[in-house]
Design a protein around this nucleic acid. Structure first.
Lengths: 143, 143
DNA sequence: TCAATAATTAGAATAATTCCATTTCTAACT
DNA sequence: AGTTAGAAATGGAATTATTCTAATTATTGA
C-alpha cells in the first residue's frame, strides 16, 4: 500500500521535485509523508522501518537517496547533532535544536528575527553562508 | 620521543586532569600538544597520524580515549559538522565555525557577548544548556 | 507503446567510532 | 627502591552509519 499525502502536501511535494527535474516517485512521497506525519526527528533507520510498513521492498539505499533528494529540494532539513546519526525534520522555519541528554529527545526552538540577524552579522565580509546550524545539548525540562 | 608541552601548557594540562582524578599520561599530553600546535581542526585520523610521529605505538583506541578525556576536562572542544568526522579545537572562547564547501577549511568565528546572550535567551525556561554549537557552511572568501 | 533515462534494489564496501580482553603503566604505600 | 591496585593503553574485532556499484525496474515524453 502506497503512502498518501494530503492534496496540499502532494502539490508541494510534486512541485518542488519537478522544479528540479526530478520525479515524484512513491518512495519519495512515502519518505516525505513519514517525516511530516510524526515530527519526532527520525533517523534514516527510523524512516527505513516506517517506510517498510507501506513499501516493504524499500532498501536503505533508497531511503538515503530519497532523503538526499528531499533535502536538496528544500522539502525537509537534515539535523546533525554531535555523536548521533543524522535526523530529519519538516520544520522549514529558522529554528535551532535542543537535545536532551537524558531522554535523547530533540526539541525545536524557534529563532526570532532579531537573534537570527545578530547571528548572521557574525559572518565576516566576503563569506557566503549557505547553511546555518544552531544546536544545544543539556537537560530538557521534563524527562 | 615524547611530546613536550611548554611549561604553561604542561601546568594547565596536568592541573585539569588531576582536578578530575585523571592521570597526565604521555599519550594525553601528546594529543593535547598536537591540537594546540597547529590550529587546523584536525580529525581523530589526523591526530592519530601526527601522534604516531612521537609515539609510534599509539593506537586509534588511545587517540579516541585521549580525545574523550581532554574534551571531558574542558581542555579541547569537539566540533561536529554535517557529513564530516568530528574534529578538535583548542579555542575555548565562545566561537562558531564556518566550513567552506570548496576548500573544506574550517574557520573560527568569534561570537560577541551580545549575540551570545541573545542566543542563550532562545532557550525555554527550565532547560539547562550544557553545550552550544553554532556552525555555518558556505563559501569562504579566498579559496 | 516504446525508448531513453531516472530511480530503486541488494549487497558489498567504506568510514568513523566503539568495544573488549589483555598488557602495561602510574602513583600511592611500604 | 619494590609492591601492588587501579587506571590507561593496546590490537584487533565489532558496530554503526552511510555510500557505492552493478543490475533491475519504473517513469515520462515522443
Amino acid at each position: 500500500m502506497t503512502y498518501s499525502l494530503s492534496p496540499v502536501q502532494q502539490k508541494t511535494f510534486a512541485h518542488s521535485l519537478r522544479a528540479k527535474g526530478l520525479r515524484p516517485t512513491k518512495q519519495r512521497a512515502c519518505v516525505y509523508g513519514i517525516i511530516l506525519e510524526k515530527r519526532d526527528h527520525p533517523t534514516a533507520d527510523d524512516i527505513y522501518n516506517r517506510v517498510r510498513k507501506y513499501l516493504p521492498g524499500t532498501s536503505f539505499a533508497t531511503v538515503y537517496n530519497c532523503l538526499e533528494t528531499l533535502v536538496g529540494c528544500g522539502l525537509v532539513r537534515q539535523v546533525n547533532m554531535a555523536r548521533s546519526p543524522a535526523c530529519y525534520c519538516p520544520n522549514l522555519s529558522p529554528h535551532a535544536h535542543f537535545k536532551c541528554n537524558r531522554s535523547g529527545k530533540i526539541y525545536d526552538i524557534e529563532i526570532d528575527k532579531k537573534t537570527l540577524a545578530s547571528i548572521h552579522s557574525l559572518i565576516p565580509e566576503g563569506f557566503e553562508t549557505e547553511n546555518l546550524d544552531l544546536s544545544f545539548t543539556g537537560n530538557g525540562f521534563q524527562n
